[in-house]
Design a protein around this nucleic acid. Sequence first.
DNA 1: GTCTATACGATGATAGAC
DNA 2: GTCTATCATCGTATAGAC
Lengths: 214, 214
Amino acid sequence: MQDVQEPAAWGGVEPEAAQRLLTAGVEAFAERGYHATTTRDIAGRAGMSPAALYIHFKTKEELLFRISRVGHERARAVIAAAAESEGTAGERLACAVRAFARWHAEHHTTARVVQYELAALGEEHYAEIVALRREIDRLVRGIIEDGVRDGEFAVADVPGTALAVLSLCVDVARWFSAAGSRPPEEVGSLYADLVGRMVAAPDVRDARRHGPQE
Amino acid sequence: MQDVQEPAAWGGVEPEAAQRLLTAGVEAFAERGYHATTTRDIAGRAGMSPAALYIHFKTKEELLFRISRVGHERARAVIAAAAESEGTAGERLACAVRAFARWHAEHHTTARVVQYELAALGEEHYAEIVALRREIDRLVRGIIEDGVRDGEFAVADVPGTALAVLSLCVDVARWFSAAGSRPPEEVGSLYADLVGRMVAAPDVRDARRHGPQE
DNA sequence: GTCTATACGATGATAGAC
DNA sequence: GTCTATCATCGTATAGAC
C-alpha cells in the first residue's frame, strides 16, 4: 500500500548495518528457511563478518523476530486500512482481500518468513506475534460480520469463512514466484473476486457481476 | 479416503523398522521442520540408535523423499478418485475439494511435510515430486474446464482459479491442529461449499443453495 | 563497530564389533 | 540389522585486537 520495494523498507531502523542484516536475513530465511540458514550466510550477504551480526542482534532468533514483527505490522496495516475505510462490507472485504493477497505476492519473500517461520520463534516472541495475528483475524471477521448483519453476505460459518479467506491470501506467499507468476495486482483482483463470490448473498450476486470474471 | 490412521499407513514398506523410521520422520519433520530435525531425534523416536537410520535410508534427505513421495501419491489418489467419478463437474469438484481439504486436515502432519519441505529435497528427488504435483494440478484444472464447457461454471481465469482452489486446500495443513480445530469432515464440507460458490455460474447458484451455508 | 580467531557443542554420516 | 564409538565438519556465539 505505502511501501514500494522489498529492500530498503526497514523504516528508520537503527544503524544502517542493522538494516542490511535484516534484508539479508529476510532473503536467506525465505530462500532456505530459518534453520537451514547460517549466521555466516546472513552476515556474508550483508557484507560483514559473522561476528558483526551479534553487535546488532542478540541472537539469530532475535533477527528473525524483528523481521517477523515488522512484517506482521505491515500486514496488519494493509488489512486495517481496508477495514476502516468507507463503503459497504462487500467493498471493504474486496479491498482488504485485494490488498492482502497483493501484499503477499509483492512481498512474497518477507511474507514467506512471516507466515512460515513462526515455529522458530522463542516462546515470548511467539506470543507477541500471535497477538498481532489475532488482530488481523479479528479485522477480517469483523468485515464479514458486518456484511452478514446488513444482509449483503450469506455466510453460515463466519469464523470458518474468515479463516479460509485469510488462508487463501496467506498461501500466496508459498506459491508466488516473482518470475513465473502473474503480476501481484492480478492476484489481488482475482482473489478479491473469488472471495466476493464466496460470501455474497444470492440477491446481490447479479450486482457483483462486473469484475474480472466472465 | 482409504486409510484411517496416520501411523501404520506405510502400505507394505520394506522391513518394519523402516516403517518406524518413516513414521518418526513424519512426526519430527512436521513438528520442527526438516532442517531443525536431527537424525538422532528421528532414530530416538523410532527406538533405535542414530546409526540404524542409515541401514534403511542412504541419507536423511532420502528419508524425507520417501515420505514426500508416498504423501504426494496419496494426495493425488484422493483427487483422482473424485475427478474420475461420475457426476456433473460441480459434483466432482465438490467431491475433490471435500476430500482434498479433509485429507490435509486429517493427515495434517504428513501434509505439512508434503507441502512445506519441498525445498529440502535434492534436485532429482525434487523433480520427481514436482511431476506428481503437476498431475494434481492438471486434475483439478480439468474438472473446472469441464464445468466451464458445460456452462455450469462461470470462471474467467481457469488456471488462476484452479491454483486458488488447490492453494486453499493445501493451506489447511498449515493452520489445522488436531486439538483446537473443527473436525476434518467439517473443514471438507465448508471448503466444498466455498469453492462451489467461487465457480458457480449465476443460473445454477440458486440450485446450489442446499449445502451447509445459510 | 567491525574484524580475526576461536571456543564448544551438535550434526550427518561411517567403522567395526556383535 | 543393530549397537557403540567416533570422525570430520559446521553451527552459534564470544574474546579481544584495532
